[in-house]
Amino acid sequence: MARGRAGDPDHAVELLWREGGARPRQGLSLDRIVRAGVALADAEGLAGLSMRKVAERLGFTTMSLYRHVPGRDQLIDLMCDEVAAEAGAAPEEGDWRTRLEACAREGWELRRRHPWLAEVRGGRHIPGPHAIARYERMLSAVVDTGLTPAEVIAVVGLVGRFLDSEALLLVEAAEAERRSGVSHEEWWGGRDALFERLPAYPTITRLWEEGGFDDPEDPFEFGLARLLDGISLMIHERYESRDETGVCTVCGTPVDQPASGRPRAYCSPSCRQRAYRRRRSGGA
C-alpha cells in the first residue's frame, strides 16, 4: 500500500514522474486525485486540504486514495507540479532582464490562479518535472550574465521568494475576508477611531494630504521593477570588476574581446547607449 511509503522521498520522485504508480482501480487514478486536490485547495486554501475531503469530492473512501498516494505531503508536491504545467514557455530571445521578468510574471499569474502555492513552505518538498523545467528557464535567463554560479542560483531564489511573499498577502487578505465576511476596503473604511489620531504624525499627514495614499503603487509591479534594477546593478558591477573575457552587461551576449587594449563592456553601440542612458537617469 502506498501509504506505507509516506516518508520515502524516492517514492515521491517516482510518483512525480509517474514511474511505477498504481494502476487505476474502478475509475480512480493518481491524476484524478491530484486534480481534485488542486480544485479543493483553490476553493479552500491549503488549510482546507485533506485526504478525506479529496476522497469525498471523488466519491471514494479515504483509504482508496492511499493506494495511489501515500499522504497529504506527497499530494501537495504532486499538485504543485500539476499547476506548474500550466505555465507557458518563457521567451528564449531578448536580454536577461526581459527573460527573467517574463518568468516572474508567469510565476505571479500561477500564484494568482492558485494562491495556495505560496503557502507551500519548507525546504523538503520534492519538485516534479514541470517545476524543474520552470526553474531551468529562470536559471537559463541569468546564467550568461557574468554572475558566479552561486549568484545565479541566489538571484533566481530571490525572485521566487519575492513572488511568494506578495502572493501570501493575497492569501491572507482572502482568508480574512472569508472569516469575517467583510472586504479589505470595508474593514479599513470603518477605522475612524484610528484615522482621528493620525494628524499627530506629521509625515503621515503630509503624505496623506499630498495624495500619496490615494493612488498607491502596485506592490507587485513596483517590487519586481526594483528587484530587477538591483540585479542589473550587481551584474554591471561584477562585469566592471572583471578583466577576463565576459558578456555584455546590458543584454548578456558574449563579447568578442580585442587582442590588446581596453576590454569591451558591450556587444554593440546600441547596448553602450542603453547603458549610458540608464546611468544618466539613475537606473541600473
Rank of each mutant, 00 (worst) to 15 (best):
A55T: 00
R23C: 01
D214G: 12
F162M: 13
E209H: 12
E56S: 12
W116T: 02
M51L: 09
G223E: 06
R67F: 12
L233M: 14
L198P: 06
L194K: 04
A85W: 09
L194M: 12
Q74E: 13
A85H: 10
R238D: 06
E244L: 00
P219E: 02
E136V: 15
L78N: 06
Q273H: 14
I231K: 02
H114F: 03
V247G: 14
T253N: 05
G252N: 01
G211N: 04
G123D: 10
G94Q: 05
H68S: 02
M63S: 12
L28D: 05
L40N: 01
C80E: 06
M234E: 15
A150Y: 05
V83E: 05
R5P: 01
I76F: 08
P219I: 06
V69E: 03
D164I: 02
I204S: 13
A39S: 12
R97P: 04
T245P: 05
G59C: 15
A102D: 02
V159W: 14
L139T: 03
I235T: 08
L147E: 06
E136F: 10
S241F: 03
W108C: 01
G212K: 08
V83Q: 09
E14Y: 11
S180W: 11
R32W: 02
L139N: 11
D81W: 08
G181S: 08
G88Y: 11
W108M: 13
G223H: 07
R121L: 13
R18Q: 12
R112N: 04
P129Q: 06
T205F: 03
Y239N: 08
A200E: 15
Y239D: 13
